[in-house]
Design a binder for these strands. Structure first.
Length: 919
RNA sequence: GCCCCGGUGGUGGAAUCGGUAGACACGCAGGACUUAAAAUCCUGUUCGCCGCAACGCGAGUGCGGGUUCGACCCCCGCCCGGGGCACCA
């Protein structure tokens, strides 16, 4: 009987489905384990072989934990709101709901063919009203909360209004407007509109006017992490800064908790670093520089107050509010020309070419300690959005200031002596300060505290912490997203009562933008006008639904709550989260923030969603290239192409065997290739190859369905793991797949003889057989636990080789082998389990216990070395302690001869390795 | 520029705690079975030297130093590759 993987896989997929074999209960006395994949956006392109890499890893881990006796939650769903479906609708006239549905069906079929153990009864889709009802509900919770900086947690708005009526906002400065101060009496005197405006500046989800990233081509604003180098992440369209009314998430209030939380989770170093950099916390000072001959002052932010005596000029951002006031008559034409120039430059130009540019304002400030006049300049290298939008320039210590000073011929005061070489700024913190008055002779690091104390004592400055992270834009002028449960009445945002949720997305044929930069929903007057107000017509961004989906899987059918407290208490944190690094600063930060808010408000019992995160690598494509002689229809084989001037054509990888092109299918591929002719080498046409991103554009996409059809899901699963560490990027390469397939066939043949059929014996295994299997099991459980699946697959091969050398067909050994293999090749294991007379699903078997006695050797022969040079062999009991070994070794006559009466420096006993005498 | 991660045979990659470097697999070479092919099995495969062979010797984990009885692993200085950030004061 041959290994008929197609029949076997179909049979067991159906059986598991019918039995609901992967249904998970929230009610179990087994310990829980929550294993989660980042859910996919169901794109029209379907899965390629890169996508399942992480899914296979998490599936193996889930099945492993299940056999180990855990109640494993391992769900799957779809992040089904988003821009591409909407663009597809605009281009093809197919409504997003329809195309999304089709895509999901296709994804589901592809996933099922690989044999994942998802509990499909828990599937979620972010675009289902039964799901986004709760996304809207959580939004309202955010809207009804503010961040108490004293307690470091979110609280209800009602508590804030109570505080305001008792004591004003003295204890709770406004995060949206630092200058806002009011007493209880003033609060009492305010009208409702004014009060609501103030409250809005405290809310965790708030509406404000701000500079946003506006993408004209997509017709929407984008969050900072959706903009890369001045163009949109999706589509690469230009993005400009624009002032708009927008919803925001006040994630900046959580900056510290997001940083602290990183110490409690297992993320990779690079992931933690990316998040840390994005949050960008820095410690420094704000210092006021009084204007010479005026009352006003310029407040700068610096992380290096220790260099205050090296300040040669101040620089303010072109958008700084004091700019008009600073420009003197004498400098007016020059300064205004500069401002005009800055204005004419797009965001993208500013990013792309960082030229040194600026203008003198004509104004001077006074140095707070020396009283010297300090010229004030304007330059676009100072960003309006960070710190105070103004800096003190210390050219000897800061490279940008140095370049600026050189370019405009400004003086450069040296406060670090020989550490400054006159041509390059030196940002050291270890120099001894000179020319620095009361800081002279101090090392910069120590001077920091001294100057800060002095600044605070004299009231010209104070310690200040800053963050690079900005509040996250939370509205999109699009259709295919969650509607906001908000109605505007008299300029006040009124939340809809929970009973009116969900606010369903109304059907809409035409998806063109509404008037005045509003989204398509603005084109539906009947929907827009609601109970004497107008609905918010923006929709929520893609990350809204994905910020909390891991909670919904715990209790997916709950119509009363987003997730019952009992369910979230039972499942708790995600024990293992698997996904790509591309969500490092988007999804992962947002979902961490939402989790913290839900925790603060008492809805869940934990405040970090993901205990351990593994980032799977990307699988690249191996493209095939044909060379067309320029201006002809003749193609030349790769080995001969250098003799001609050629153009490169990406050939679909399915038409190539290795590098040899199937010229027939190539001709039929596209009409323009019908009359192609070929210059062959050795009778065949050889393509060139190149590793690049797997993409339709390069025709190098390999569909997992093809691989599964040819080798079976079990081979596919094991091979993707065998390719190398899960975390590593690698090209798709089928070279080694035969080896894995051979392993499965070999295993099959051990049970199933071609003529005789089943060959197993009931005999008791001998020690060597037990030893082989237990050694293998131990290694595999270690490897699986630490996510090293490539080495685990190797261990299976080693185990099988040893057992076939022993000619072991004993059922007692082989059933253990199958149980351990199940996570990796579930279909074959299930089939063989039943074929060997077992009943019940192998999925429900307990993981075999390793009998340690078969792994332990009672005594072992060790090489004994003198200073690392092996001199003799000695047999030592493995139970012996280091001290006993030392005594035995030193008592040996040979050893005594070597030592010649002198005591050794030490005796090194390396268990299982060697004994070394160091003299 | 700054930060992080890596560099091991012809190839993908092992070596988990500083202790036999190159597991396992691919590829390749040779062989068995076969009319032939496929499939399967066996042998060899880091490099160099000596040799019929066994054995032996020498070198070897990007480069140069160091610590150690012992270094792919730790330290210092370079080179190369990948990723992230990039006027964040």
């Amino acid at each position: 009987m041959e290994y008929q993987f197609r029949d076997i896989e179909r049979k067991w997929q159906e059986a598991w489905d019918n039995q609901g074999a992967y249904r998970v209960s929230n009610d179990s006395n087994r310990p829980k384990c929550y294993v989660l994949d980042m859910f996919p956006y169901p794109s029209g392109a379907g899965l390629h072989v890169g996508h399942p890499l992480g899914y296979i890893a998490s599936d193996i881990y889930s099945r492993f934990k299940r056999l180990k006796g855990f109640n494993v939650l391992h769900p799957m769903g779809y992040d089904s709101f988003g821009l591409p479906a909407e663009q597809y609708a605009i281009e093809h006239g197919i409504p997003p709901a329809v195309s999304t549905d089709n895509n999901i069906r296709n994804f589901r079929a592809q996933l099922n063919r690989i044999g994942f153990c998802y509990d499909w009864s828990r599937e979620v889709r972010t675009s289902d009203a039964s799901y986004y009802k709760w996304t809207q509900w959580i939004f309202l919770e955010l809207f009804d909360s503010w961040f108490d900086r004293l307690q470091g947690k979110a609280r209800r708005m009602a508590e804030l209004t109570e505080i305001f009526s008792k004591e004003g906002n003295a204890e709770y400065p406004c995060p949206g407007d630092r200058a806002l101060h009011f007493s209880a009496a003033e609060w009492a005197s305010l009208d409702e509109r004014k009060r609501q405006d103030i409250l809005m500046d405290y809310r965790l989800a708030y509406c404000g006017h701000g500079e946003v990233n506006w993408c004209e081509a997509l017709g929407t604003v984008l969050a900072n992490d959706e903009v890369i180098n001045g163009v949109s992440e999706r589509g690469g369209h230009p993005v400009v800064r624009k002032k708009l009314r927008q919803w925001y998430l006040r994630i900046t209030e959580y900056a510290d908790r997001l940083l602290e939380g990183l110490h409690t989770v297992e993320f990779s170093d690079s992931m933690k670093e990316m998040q840390t950099n994005w949050i960008g916390k820095s410690f420094g000072a704000e210092i006021d520089f009084k204007l010479d001959g005026g009352d006003a002052h310029i407040r700068v932010y610096t992380t290096r107050p220790d260099t205050i005596f090296g300040v040669d000029f101040l620089v303010v951002a072109p958008e700084h509010p004091l700019v008009p006031y600073l420009i003197s008559d004498g400098q007016r034409s020059e300064a205004e020309a500069y401002l005009e120039y800055v204005n004419s430059r797009s965001e993208r130009e500013r990013m792309a070419e960082k030229k040194i540019s600026g203008a003198f304002t004509g104004s001077y400030c006074v140095h707070p300690f020396t009283g010297n006049p300090i010229p004030v300049w304007i330059s676009e290298y100072v960003l309006a959005g960070y710190g105070t939008g103004a800096i003190m320039a210390v050219p000897c210590g800061d490279e940008r200031d140095h370049r600026f000073a050189l370019h405009f011929g400004l003086p450069i005061t040296n406060i670090i002596g020989s550490h400054y070489n006159g041509t390059d700024a030196n940002p050291t913190k270890d120099a001894v300060l000179e020319e620095s008055d009361f800081l002279n002779g101090l090392v910069m690091r120590e001077a920091m505290a001294v100057v800060l104390d002095r600044l605070e004592a004299s009231g010209v400055g104070k310690r200040q912490v800053n963050y690079k992270m900005r509040d996250a834009a939370f509205s999109r002028q699009r259709y295919w997203g969650e509607p906001f449960p908000i109605v505007w009445k008299d300029g006040i945002a009124v939340p809809l009562p929970a009973g009116e949720l969900p606010v369903e997305l109304p059907p809409l044929e035409e998806l063109h933008p509404g008037p005045g930069g509003e989204g398509p929903l603005a084109n539906l007057p009947d929907w827009k006008h609601y109970h004497g107000g107008v609905r918010e017509v923006n929709t929520m961004p893609g990350y809204a639904g994905s910020s909390w989906y891991f909670l919904r899987y715990m209790d997916p059918g709950n119509g009363q709550e987003f997730c019952s407290r009992a369910a979230s208490d039972y499942w708790g944190q995600v024990d293992l989260y698997v996904g790509g690094t591309e969500h490092a600063v988007g999804h992962l930060l947002y979902s961490r923030m939402w989790t913290k808010v839900l925790h603060d408000l008492g809805h869940i019992g934990f405040d970090e969603p993901f205990r351990r995160l593994v980032n799977q690598g990307k699988i690249g494509g191996d493209s095939r290239i044909a060379y067309r002689i320029r201006g002809t229809h003749q193609f030349v084989s790769a080995g001969l192409k250098d003799n001609y001037e050629t153009d490169e054509i990406h050939v679909d990888v399915s038409m190539v065997d290795g590098v040899v092109l199937n010229t027939g299918s190539f001709r039929n591929w596209r009409p323009d290739l019908h009359d192609a002719t070929f210059l062959l080498e050795d009778g065949v046409y050889r393509c060139g190859s190149r590793l690049e991103k797997m993409s339709k554009r390069y025709h190098n996409v390999v569909n997992p369905d093809e691989v599964v059809a040819r080798y079976g899901a079990d081979t596919f699963r094991m091979y993707e793991m065998f390719l190398g560490p899960v975390e590593q990027d690698k090209p798709w390469d089928t070279k080694g797949i035969e080896g894995v397939h051979r392993f499965l066939k070999k295993l099959w043949r051990m049970f199933m003889h071609e003529e005789k059929g089943l060959v197993v014996s009931q005999e008791s295994p001998i020690d060597a057989e037990w030893k082989a299997i237990y050694k293998m099991i131990r290694k595999i459980e270690e490897d699986t636990e630490r996510f090293s699946f490539n080495t685990a697959v190797s261990q299976f091969m080693i185990g099988l080789n040893e057992l076939s050398d022993l000619k072991c067909h004993k059922i007692a050994v082989l059933e253990k082998f199958l149980i351990v293999l199940t996570p990796y090749a579930p279909h074959m294991c299930e089939e063989l389990w039943h074929a060997t007379g077992h009943s019940g699903s192998i999925l429900d078997q307990p993981w075999p216990t390793v009998e340690e006695k078969y792994l332990v050797e009672t005594s072992k022969s060790y090489p004994v070395a003198l200073n690392g040079k092996t001199r003799m062999e000695m047999t030592i009991s493995l139970q012996a302690t280091s001290a006993e070994v030392e005594a035995i070794v030193l008592a040996d006559p040979n050893v005594q001869k070597w030592l010649d009466g002198k005591p050794p420096k030490k005796v090194v006993f390396v268990p299982n390795r060697m004994i070394n005498i160091v003299v």
